[in-house]
């Protein structure tokens, strides 16, 4: 059965986030050969339409309004519901980001539909669209299907491979005008703490520090290593609580969920709440001076030792590798 599927493109600092391209790929699977329609909501976002098409959207609907210059649940819900009403799709996919988590349940409630949140895979099997998602803090997985109505899901960043970018693809871009009224919650101020540069939740390499880094300066060797590998720096809550770094770096149940190709945990014990944020990384390396530390149980490779000795050596060794390849 072919379906029309809407996919919301999410922007950050004026560009599309990778998760939007991943959501398009998921949308393609849900569509089973049907049309994938990109949706852009914001102020001055229409220029991004072409990229959604290059990543696989067949066409794009844009809702622009100055009241949509920042995400608010009221504003974006009005815009997205208007597009849904106009298009009557059979599927809808968003990224499982701060925005997607906030907006999607509201849309589902409004439409009295189901919603499968935080999917890490989507397949068609036995005539059903089957989503896989982690449960119990990533200690188990479930496969879930929608039994009634709209096939609606959010996808976890970095898990579903985007389609290859095809610059020759073209698609229609239509704008829909929606009267945005009654914003009941207004953003007065945004305090930016998240670091510039590589987006932690989308990074391919993450170097994380825990209480074992012992000070804010202790993060310096980790930053060096991240630079050499083109990765991002993360942290355990232990390190954040001790004020060695900002909470925006926290990985885990209450922080960011990351699934990079390579996760290097330095001076992190491996508490379950931390594992909930990184255990699905493709390859995990643990550096810890305690051979009994729990982190070694989930690590693919481990070095028992002092991170202040190991990390600089690693940086040097990776530099050599980069020169040779």
């Amino acid at each position: 059965m072919t379906r029309k599927v809407l996919v919301l493109g999410e922007t950050r600092d004026g560009s599309l986030r990778n998760v939007s391209f991943e959501a398009i790929a998921a949308g393609k699977t849900v569509a089973e050969g049907g049309e994938v329609v990109g949706v852009l909501i914001g102020q001055n976002v229409s220029a991004l339409s072409a990229e959604l098409v290059q990543y696989g959207a067949d066409r794009v609907v844009v809702v622009e309004d100055e009241k949509l210059n920042q995400y608010t649940s009221d504003g974006f819900a009005q815009a997205l519901l208007a597009v849904l009403e106009k298009e009557s799709p059979e599927g809808l996919v968003l990224g499982h980001t701060s925005l997607g988590k906030d907006l999607s349940p509201r849309i589902a409630a409004k439409l009295s539909s189901g919603l499968i949140s935080d999917a890490t895979a989507v397949d068609v099997a036995g005539g059903n669209v089957v989503f896989t998602r982690p449960i119990y803090s990533s200690k188990a997985f479930e496969k879930k299907i929608v039994t009634d109505g709209l096939i609606f899901a959010t996808v976890r960043p970095n898990n579903i491979a985007p389609l290859a970018k095809d610059e020759s693809r073209a698609g229609e871009v239509a704008s829909l005008s929606v009267e945005i009224k009654d914003l009941r919650a207004i953003i007065k101020e945004v305090v930016r703490k998240a670091s510039e540069g590589v987006d932690l939740s989308e990074a391919k390499v993450v170097i994380s520090g825990g209480r074992g880094v012992k000070s804010a300066d202790g993060f310096e060797p980790l930053k060096e290593l991240a630079k050499v590998l083109g990765g991002a720096v993360g942290a355990s809550r232990g390190a954040c609580d001790a004020d060695y770094c900002d909470y925006s770096l926290q990985i885990g149940q209450t922080g960011k969920v990351v699934t990079p190709d390579l996760y290097i945990a330095c001076g992190i014990s491996g508490a379950i709440q931390h594992l909930a944020g990184m255990s699905n990384s493709k390859v995990i390396v643990a550096i810890n001076k305690d051979p009994e530390a729990n982190i070694f149980k989930v690590a693919d490779y481990g070095i028992v030792g002092d991170l202040f000795e190991v990390v600089p050596l690693l940086t040097e060794e990776f530099k050599k590798l980069k020169v040779h390849s």
Binding site: E142, V146, I303
Partner: peptide
Amino acid sequence: AKTKTIEIYLPPKKEAGKVLSGDLNDQV
């Protein structure tokens, strides 16, 4: 319910990771 769980499973057991040994330089 509008959705249904059709399967629950544990992640494939991770093989015990390789904890390296020997001289630290060689380990790295």
